[in-house]
Nucleic acid binder design. Sequence first.
DNA 1: CTATTCTTTGTACGGTCGTACTAGAAATGT
DNA 2: ACATTTCTAGTACGACCGTACAAAGAATAG
Lengths: 194, 194
Amino acid sequence: MAGRPVDHQRRAELLDAVVDYTVEHGFSDLSWRPVAAALGVSPTTLVHRFGTKEQMLVAILGRLRERIFAATNDAIGEKPDLATAARAVWTRTSDPRRGAEFRLFFAVYGRALQAPEQFAGFLDRVVADWMNALREAQGPGTDPATATRTATLVIATIRGLLLDLLATGDRDRVQDAAESFLTTLEHQDTGQRR
Amino acid sequence: MAGRPVDHQRRAELLDAVVDYTVEHGFSDLSWRPVAAALGVSPTTLVHRFGTKEQMLVAILGRLRERIFAATNDAIGEKPDLATAARAVWTRTSDPRRGAEFRLFFAVYGRALQAPEQFAGFLDRVVADWMNALREAQGPGTDPATATRTATLVIATIRGLLLDLLATGDRDRVQDAAESFLTTLEHQDTGQRR
DNA sequence: CTATTCTTTGTACGGTCGTACTAGAAATGT
DNA sequence: ACATTTCTAGTACGACCGTACAAAGAATAG
């Protein structure tokens, strides 16, 4: 009555491999055949797992967001205050070893802005995920409006600096600006609390 | 000895029309035929003007950067100090009427990050253009290192906030954060000068 | 064993892509 | 007028695209 069971782990393996490929080869002209060739499987296998190409894009995008968010979220939760959390996030996001991942992140981001209905899930979470984490990092004693305002600014500044760093590669200049921002944040942070 | 002269104006008209089309229909799956159909010309006409597709992309991208930079540059040059200039830039970039243009801007930005050699010209200027303008806005009396650091932060923050605004559409929250940043910039600005 | 379901692969089809080629119309200098 | 060059349009070709379909192998339950 019950045939061969569905191999969910296999799908997860393939998805991770596809995300790896996308991180390396870009997102703009992704297609079944080259990906399949790189993974050593048949294009039909990928189709069988992901359905349509759009569904695969959504899957890639979700997995990428998981990866990036997981890499930064634990850096936020355990920190005593916002400034420390922000510094931890910047340290991780500006890590050169994560450069390719964030290049893909911004590529997806830009494309999502031009096809909002297709990438609605991404756009909904791309700010909200960090937002919640950074608001909680400010503790329950902070004024909600201030917490939201500060979290918005931290997210924007870090992402803007990251855009600069990835575009220019001028790490000295960007890191200098980041230090300035984080220092200001620390002073402002203690100033608000006491 | 000399046949029909080259019609440069015609090319400029076509390029502007193509940029308009790209702003509206997106950048990721641009191709000759739909663009030509929308402009009411033959695909061959576009090929004749722009050569290859990659050359057209470069042309689009350059024209887009011209438009965006022109819209903000005059807002910078005539202002007395950095804070005022930054406020003027934010006012213009966050204008809803320019939303589509900046969506395209970030789409190009993201794609350029994943194909740096193809979009090297864009990446070279995407930060440097504003950088020069914002450094000059701080006057000759400012310490060069400080001027660079501040300009980097202003660019990053404005672009990060714009990314947030375009993704979430939450104008109230983003505008609130922008006000906070601009206010801080004004205080910091006068503080450094006197 | 058989029956059933999932997995993988090969093949094939219609569609779109970039672009090379050809030819006629339009605009110039002599 | 003519020669020359640009402009525009039409056609065609090979390549790649997404995906539907059929068939063979593998893993389960009875």
